[in-house]
Each structure stands twice: as structure tokens, then as C-alpha cells.
Amino acid sequence: MENDGALGDRALPPARKENIPMTTESKVIRVLVAKVGLDGHDRGVKIVARTLRDAGMEVIYTGLHRTPEEVVDAAVQEDVDVIGISILSGAHMTVFPRLLKLLDERGAKDIMVVGGGVIPDDEVIQLKNLGVKEIMLQDTPPDSIVAMIRRIVVERGPR
């Protein structure tokens, strides 16, 4: 075996986690990513899913053409921290309010909702006022999405 003195001034090299299971408490952020509405443009949502995975999050992807009811059912069962909704069909002003209402009815208001899609600025403001945490627009850099999710989870606090 080659002795490369890797232990000098730095800690252990990043362990491949399959070799050393993390048995101490691990807070993994769980995000449900869904396409609601009828449009099938999943380019953005897939990039987001990959980005979050590569940032160490667990992404529950529920596929295309989901209804708000299905999304909320899944989010509650999966106990996710965040629901990320991508919608490009123009139905965002119908979909987001219903999602928030359903979460409320299900006693799951600690699940935060963020969204992405082609949404005009004034409607972005309306949606945020309704309780959508963040709206990500086209070309939001992947890093900022990760940072945003981490930030809102920290702001929410333990639950």
C-alpha cells in the first residue's frame, strides 16, 4: 500500500459513506419534488432533483401531472421538510393556494412550499404573500437553490 501521508494536517478523507455507516444522529433534509398540472416540462425539475441529491438531500420525486391532493398526501407520509413544485402550465395561481390550504387542513403547515416556473413578477409577490416560501425562476443557479432550501429549513427550526 502506498504511504502518502494523507493524515498530515487534515482530517480523514471524506469517507465513502457505505463504508462507515453514520450511526450518530443524521439530519437529512428531505424534499418532495413534483410537477403539478398538466405540462410535462421536466427539464428544470430534474435538474433541481439532481442538484439537491448532489448536495446530500433526499429527494422524493413523484413524477408528472400530479394533483395538489396527491402531492400533499405524499408529503405528509414522507414527512418532508420542503415541497418543491414546478409548474409551467400557467395554473400556478390555482395550484399553490390549494396546496397551502390542503397542508393546513392536514395539520402539516411545517412543510414548506417553494415553486418554480414561468411566473410573472406580480404573481410571484402574490404567491409569497399567500405563504409560498420562495419562487425560483428560470436560470436560478443550482447552488442558490441548495442554499435557499438549507436556509428555510434552518429558519424553520427543529420540529
Binding site: R53, G56, M57, V59, I60, Y61, E70, D73, Q77, E78
Partner: peptide
């Protein structure tokens, strides 16, 4: 094994049963 993250897509296959109150699915 590298990021510790995961994409969990099994619910997609569950289809209608995921909406059944007598069924609980956890990924």
C-alpha cells in the same frame, strides 16, 4: 455514496394506491 443524497422515485409506480387511506408509503 458520495453526497449522501438520494432520489427516491418509487412512489411514481404506486399510482392510485398511494392515495388510498388504507395504504402508507414511505420512501
Amino acid at each position: 455514496p458520495f453526497s449522501g443524497g438520494a432520489i427516491l422515485g418509487d412512489r411514481i409506480r404506486m399510482g392510485a394506491i398511494a392515495a388510498d387511506p388504507g395504504v402508507y408509503v414511505r420512501s
